[in-house]
Design a binder for these strands. Structure first.
Lengths: 149, 149
DNA sequence: TACTAATCATTGGTGTACATACTAACTGGC
DNA sequence: GCCAGTTAGTATGTACACCAATGATTAGTA
């Protein structure tokens, strides 16, 4: 007779929850960025906005909201802070006055040169191979796709 | 003569950043939990605290802070809210008056029966195999270990 | 034993993150 | 040109999340 395990596995075990690992991983990785971004006067979400703007510069709040998957209500104050630092300019779109165009300032554009070092610094600290990180990235994008449906 | 790619890869490309995928994945997965946790009157961080308490009940703030890798300053108001709902009791440790002991109430203990369904609901919504999730969990714990050093 | 250092939780400040409600501006159909 | 319905961004309220400072308590030590 085959015995079943006497102690059934606990579905609610904390260490087993992927959501827990995701939340902690997100927070701890962002914590790695914090001292690196601090000299640039950027928080991590602000850094992500800058990445988006370095790829294409006049972008609307709506556009950033879609790409970063962030609520416009979250971006609104964040973008004002970026403007206050002087990395970004906010102006209404002439063609559509509803839309707010975010444009990089000279200072914001120039910042990219400094930022170029960041990915290398982070990868070095994480001490993981390029392959591992690429694969993780793929799995995460799959999770995002599944969770967003 | 071997040609090098004319357009060099961009290290700052948003979609390539693991930190971005991590942040979005964490937020979107938590968003999956939101409607599921809402009937229990719990936010996701509160749910994680409950998971920890269901595993072992009198736990201090310090202890929870270590396990959940959360600042005590974050937990303090969160735990007061859990107390206000009636899932938890807060009382100073008799032996060490500095420590605050968090104990499950009867209501809090009973809630576990409802919560047992949650992992299955989430896995069903994510539509991913047990193996995929287990493997993701392992990689995330590796990232956490590397990032925490 | 008195003094000092370490520990634990809370408080206050800044910055996300999301939901809801709101205003201004645009659109299509008439 | 007008209007119903939509869209873009902002304002507000609640809840994390982290940091630094504070206060209370305990532990360590001369």
């Amino acid at each position: 007779m085959i015995s079943t395990p006497s102690i059934p596995e606990n579905p609610l075990e904390l260490e087993r929850q992927v959501c827990f690992a995701l939340a902690v991983a997100s927070r701890t990785v962002i914590a790695v960025y914090r001292p690196i971004l601090e000299p640039l006067n950027l928080t991590h979400p602000q850094y992500l906005v800058m990445l988006a703007l370095w790829e294409r510069s006049p972008r609307t709040v709506k556009d950033l909201s879609t790409v970063l998957q962030l609520d416009p209500g979250t971006l609104s104050p964040l973008l004002k802070r970026l403007e206050a630092i002087g990395y970004v300019e906010r102006q209404r779109d002439k063609a559509d006055e509803r839309a707010l165009a975010l444009t990089l300032t000279a200072k914001g554009t120039e910042l990219r040169r400094e930022a170029l070092k960041i990915p290398f610094k982070v990868v070095e600290q994480l001490d993981m191979t390029f392959e591992e990180l690429t694969q993780l990235n793929q799995v995460l994008h799959k999770v995002i796709a599944k969770a967003t449906r």
